[in-house]
Design a protein around this nucleic acid. Structure first.
Lengths: 221, 221
DNA sequence: ATATGTGAAATTATTCACAGCT
DNA sequence: AGCTGTGAATAATTTCACATAT
C-alpha cells in the first residue's frame, strides 16, 4: 500500500487527533535546531508512549530510520501533508459576541495557517461594524464566500439558541467543516464534519476527577 | 455493588466525557417542562445512540423505569451528583492576555456552577488592574487561595512559553485540576488531572477530514 | 548497538439483541 | 406492550515484545 493510499484510507481517528500534537512538538524541536529525534524523545515531548507514537506514525508511512530515529523537518512535513495543511483553509467566524470577538483577535489561526477571511453576524446592528480590522458581514454573504473565496471552515461562536441556525446557513452555503463553540449538539448531514470546543464540559470532567481524587485520598491518605 | 461504589469505582472515561452532554440535554428538557424521557429521545438530543446512552447511565446506577423511561429531574440530579457538581468548585484563571480576559468575561462558568474566585497574572504591570470587576492578583496569592478559599481548578490562559511555569505554581499551591488553553503539553504529577482545550488542534483535525471529503468526492462525485 | 515498524495480545469502547420489569 | 439494563459479540485502541533494518 502506497503512502498516499494509507493516508486516504483509514488513519484511525484516535491517531489523527494526536498528529497535531506531534506536529507542534516537532516545530518546537526544529526551532531549537534539533535535526533528528527518536520516538522515545518525541513521545515524551508530546506526552504519549513511544509505542503509541510509532503506531500512529506507521499509519502515515515509514519515515524513520531504524537505529537512528526521525528527521525532524521531514517528519513535520509528512505530518503536515497527511493533515492537509499544505493547502489553504479559509475560515469564517459566525457570531460577533464576546467569544467571536476574542476569536477574531486571536493570532493562533494565522500562525497555524488558517486564514480568517470573514467575520459574520445575523444581527443587522452588528453588520458593518469593524472588528479586529474587518467589517462584519451579513449571513447572506456566505454563499459568495464559499464560491468566490473557497471558504472551507465555519467557526460557530453564536449563543446556543442560534447555533443550529448558523450551522444550517454554513452547510447550505457549502461549508463541510464546522468548529462549534456553542454548548449545543448540532445536527448536520453526513458529509459535514463537526468538532466541538466546550468549556463547561471540560470543567465538569475536571470536577468528576477532582471528586474521585478527594475520595481516594480520604480512603488512603 | 452500591451506587456510590459504582460511581467511585470506574465509570469509563469515555462515559464521563458524555455525562455533561446528557446533563445539558436534560436541562433543556426540564426547561421546556418535559417530565419524562426515553433513552431514545434523550440519546437523539445528545447526539449519541440509545444503546450507548443506556450503557453510560448503567455505570451510574439504575434510575430508569422499564417500559416508561427516565424522570428528567431525577436523572439530571443523579448525573450532577456523579459528576461532583453538588459541591462548589472555585476556579482561578491565570494569564490576563486576550484569552484570559475573554474567559474572565465569560458567563458560562457561573451558569454551570463554577465560581471564578480569582484572576492572576505574573506580570507586576498587570497585577492590580481591574478585569471584569475583579482586581488581578499576583501568583504569590495562589497558596492563600487554595488554603482560604478552597481553590480547586486552575485555568491556564497564558502564552505557551509560561504555561508550564503557571501550571507548576498551581500544582505547588495544591491545585489538582487544570484546564489548559495554552498549546503545550504540560508535565504534572500523577495526582493532578489536566484537560486541554486547543483551537488549532481542532482546526487541524477539521483540515484532515476536509481533505478526506475532497478526495472522496473526486473519486465518487 | 540501537531504534524503528509491526504482528499479536490485552484492554477499552461500542453495538447488538433480548431477558426482565412495569 | 414497551423500554430499560445488561450479558455477549464486535470493533477500536493501546500496549507488548521482537524481528528487522541501518
Amino acid at each position: 500500500m502506497s503512502t498516499a493510499a494509507a493516508t486516504r484510507r483509514g488513519v484511525p481517528e484516535a491517531s489523527v487527533a494526536r498528529l497535531p500534537v506531534y506536529l507542534r512538538a516537532l516545530a518546537a524541536l526544529a526551532d531549537e535546531g534539533t535535526e533528528s529525534v527518536s520516538s522515545e524523545e518525541l513521545a515524551a515531548a508530546a506526552g504519549v508512549s513511544s509505542a503509541k507514537l510509532r503506531k500512529d506514525l506507521s499509519h502515515l508511512g515509514s519515515y524513520g530510520v531504524r537505529g537512528v530515529g526521525y528527521d525532524v523537518e521531514r517528519l513535520a512535513s509528512e505530518i503536515a501533508t497527511a493533515l492537509g495543511l499544505t493547502q489553504d483553509w479559509p475560515v469564517a467566524i459566525v457570531g460577533m459576541g464576546n467569544l467571536g470577538r476574542a476569536l477574531a483577535a486571536y493570532r493562533g489561526f494565522a500562525e497555524r495557517g488558517f486564514r480568517v477571511i470573514a467575520l459574520l453576524d445575523r444581527d443587522p446592528r452588528v453588520v458593518g461594524e469593524r472588528v479586529s480590522g474587518s467589517r462584519v458581514r451579513p449571513m447572506a454573504d456566505l454563499a459568495a464566500l464559499v464560491e468566490g473565496e473557497g471558504l472551507a471552515i465555519g467557526v460557530i461562536a453564536t449563543p446556543p439558541e442560534s447555533a443550529q441556525e448558523a450551522c444550517d446557513a454554513l452547510v447550505a452555503a457549502g461549508v463541510r467543516s464546522v468548529l462549534n463553540f456553542a454548548p449545543v449538539v448540532l445536527t448536520v448531514p453526513d458529509a459535514v464534519v463537526v468538532r466541538k470546543v466546550d468549556l463547561s464540559t471540560e470543567l465538569q470532567i475536571l470536577a468528576f476527577h477532582g471528586q474521585r481524587l478527594a475520595v481516594a485520598e480520604a480512603v488512603a491518605p
